[in-house]
């Protein structure tokens, strides 16, 4: 499975740090103490994350036989590449739709009164707090043939729109659950923008719209980039949602990995897929870091660390 975004750096950090000596410490000893504080987390990460990852990488090159065969077949078996393409496309659509939905929402949050803002945050966080299975089964009920969503769509003349079992349905559900990951980084950037800059723009001859486009939008870009990269990376690894709401024909990469490990016992091939997704993830994080300055990617991670829904 692909790696979660933010390593849980603080896991088990609450470890007694020994007794503080009465005399002042030289810098070197302080550094040693700092390392000592990091040790539990480093050990946990090493044992439970780095070593298994190395094992996966090893196996992808050795299982069933040494060589780059697993990787070559990714690009040559005709099937995997299609799944990879579909996964990237779904992640992209979810990201773009998420930006379009979240940007105005986060913007309104900066204008709202504190009470309204609290309500808005709660609304956007509800799917994040709901159990993954409950949420997905709820979507199944809503999207089923003759269900609420179809009923609503037929009211406006769109008859027979199928969502359950389609990639569209999967994308809709993913957008819903990933929205907080988009809204919160955007909001945290936007709330720091001084709205008087918009007035300054207008006083200098820019219309409201032009002032927004040339002043506010560029200043809110780091929020867009960090939200988008977070959502894109999380969307690449979604497993339960496509498994329940999608179809085997429209499988995404995580499902293929699951099938290979659990049913075909092809650990090498599954490992190669996982490594490939990891590389794509790192590349997209690197790109977003470049786009929005170094603070953005880590800023997003700190807003919402924890790979909530897969």
């Amino acid at each position: 499975m692909p790696a979660p975004t933010a390593p849980p750096e603080t896991a088990g950090a609450a470890v007694p740090a020994g007794r503080a000596p009465a005399r002042p410490r030289p810098a070197a000893r302080r550094r040693a103490a700092a390392l000592f504080l990091l040790l539990p987390a480093l050990v946990a990460l090493g044992v439970f994350f780095v070593l298994p990852l190395l094992d996966i990488v090893m196996r992808s090159f050795t299982d069933p036989e040494p060589g780059a065969g697993n990787y070559l077949s990714l690009f040559t078996d005709g099937y995997t590449l299609r799944v990879l393409g579909r996964t990237l496309l779904v992640a992209l659509i979810v990201t773009v739709a998420g930006v379009l939905l979240a940007y105005p929402y986060a913007y309104m949050m900066t204008l709202a009164s504190p009470t309204t803002r609290a309500v808005m945050v709660t609304v956007v966080l509800v799917p994040f707090w709901t159990s993954m299975l409950a949420r997905n089964f709820a979507w199944m009920v809503l999207m089923q043939d003759g269900g609420v969503v179809q009923g609503l769509l037929s009211l406006v003349g769109l008859n027979g729109v199928r969502l359950l079992g389609t990639t569209t349905g999967v994308a809709v559900s993913m957008i819903q659950v990933l929205l907080p990951f988009m809204v919160l980084p955007m909001y945290s950037v936007m709330q720091q923008i001084d709205r008087r800059l918009l007035l300054a723009g207008q006083s200098l001859g820019a219309s409201r719209l032009s002032s927004f486009r040339k002043v506010y939008l560029p200043l809110s870009l780091p929020g867009i980039v960090s939200g988008a990269s977070l959502v894109f990376v999380l969307a690449l690894g979604f497993y339960v949602t496509p498994a329940l709401l999608g179809s085997p024909q429209g499988a995404l990469i995580a499902q293929v990995i699951a099938v290979r490990t659990r049913e075909l016992l092809d650990f090498g091939g599954a490992g190669a897929l996982g490594v490939f997704i990891l590389v794509v993830t790192l590349i997209s994080l690197g790109v977003s870091r470049r786009l929005a300055g170094s603070g953005a990617a880590s800023g997003a991670a700190h807003v919402m660390a924890g790979g909530g829904g897969r």
């Binding site: 001084d194 008087r196 800059l197 007035l199 207008q202 006083s203 200098l204 219309s207 409201r208 002043v215």
Partner: peptide, 19 residues
Amino acid sequence: PPHRREFGMVFQNYALFPH
């Protein structure tokens, strides 16, 4: 609207565009 009034304005907090 403000942008049609052709006034220069200086703000208390400078309001320079940081980007």
